[in-house]
Amino acid sequence: MSDHSRRGFLSGALGIGAVAALTACTSNAAPAPGGGATAAAGGDNAEPGKPVTIGFSCPAADHGWIAAIAANARNQAGLYPDVTFEAVNPTTDIAQQIAAVDTLITKEVSALVILPNDGSQLTALGRKATDAGIPVINLDRVFDSPLAYRTWIGGDNYGMGVAAGTHIGEQLKAKGVGNPVIGEIAGIDNLPLTQARSKGFADALSSYGYSVGPRQAADFTAQGGQRVAANLLQAAPRLDALWNHDDDQGIGVLAAIQQAGRGEFLMVGGAGSANAMRAIKADNTVLKATVTYSPSMASSAVALARLVAQNRGMGDLVEKEVPTSLTLASATITKDNVDTYLPLGFES
Rank of each mutant, 00 (worst) to 15 (best):
R278S: 10
L254R: 12
D240L: 01
V253K: 13
A289Y: 05
D283P: 06
G270W: 15
L242Q: 01
A260P: 00
A255L: 11
G252P: 06
D283Y: 13
A241M: 12
S273D: 15
I257K: 03
N284D: 14
V253F: 03
L287A: 14
T290K: 04
V253P: 04
S273R: 15
M277F: 08
N284V: 11
M277C: 08
D283V: 12
I280S: 05
A256Q: 03
G269A: 06
H245I: 02
N244M: 12
N244T: 10
V291C: 07
A260I: 13
A279R: 11
A260N: 05
P295E: 06
R262C: 07
P295A: 05
G261F: 01
M267F: 08
Q249K: 13
V253M: 01
L239Q: 01
V286D: 03
V268A: 00
R262A: 05
M277P: 08
E264T: 12
A276N: 09
M277K: 09
A255K: 11
Q249R: 07
D246A: 08
Y293N: 15
A276K: 09
A256P: 00
A255W: 10
H245P: 07
G263N: 05
Q249I: 04
N275F: 14
G261M: 09
A289C: 00
Q258F: 09
I280T: 09
Q259Y: 02
G261I: 05
T292L: 00
A271N: 15
D247Q: 11
S294L: 06
L242S: 00
A274L: 07
G269D: 13
T285K: 02
G272L: 04
A282E: 12
K281W: 07
Q259W: 07
F265V: 06
A282I: 08
A241W: 04
G252M: 08
N244E: 07
R262T: 10
I280W: 00
T285N: 10
K288Y: 08
D240T: 03
E264H: 01
R278C: 10
V291K: 03
I251G: 02
M267Q: 13
A256M: 03
E264P: 09
S273T: 14
V286H: 03
D283C: 08
A271R: 15
R262G: 03
I251Y: 09
D283K: 04
A260G: 01
G270P: 02
V286C: 14
S273F: 14
D247W: 00
D248C: 07
I251F: 12
N284Y: 10
D240P: 04
R262H: 05
A260Q: 04
R262D: 04
L287W: 11
G261Y: 06
L239T: 02
Q258P: 03
G263L: 01
M267L: 14
T292H: 02
K281H: 09
A271S: 10
L254W: 04
V253A: 01
D247P: 01
Q258K: 14
R278T: 15
K281T: 10
N244A: 12
N275C: 10
A279C: 15
V291G: 01
D246Q: 12
M267C: 10
G269Q: 10
R262E: 05
M267G: 06
A241N: 01
A282Y: 12
V268F: 00
G250M: 00
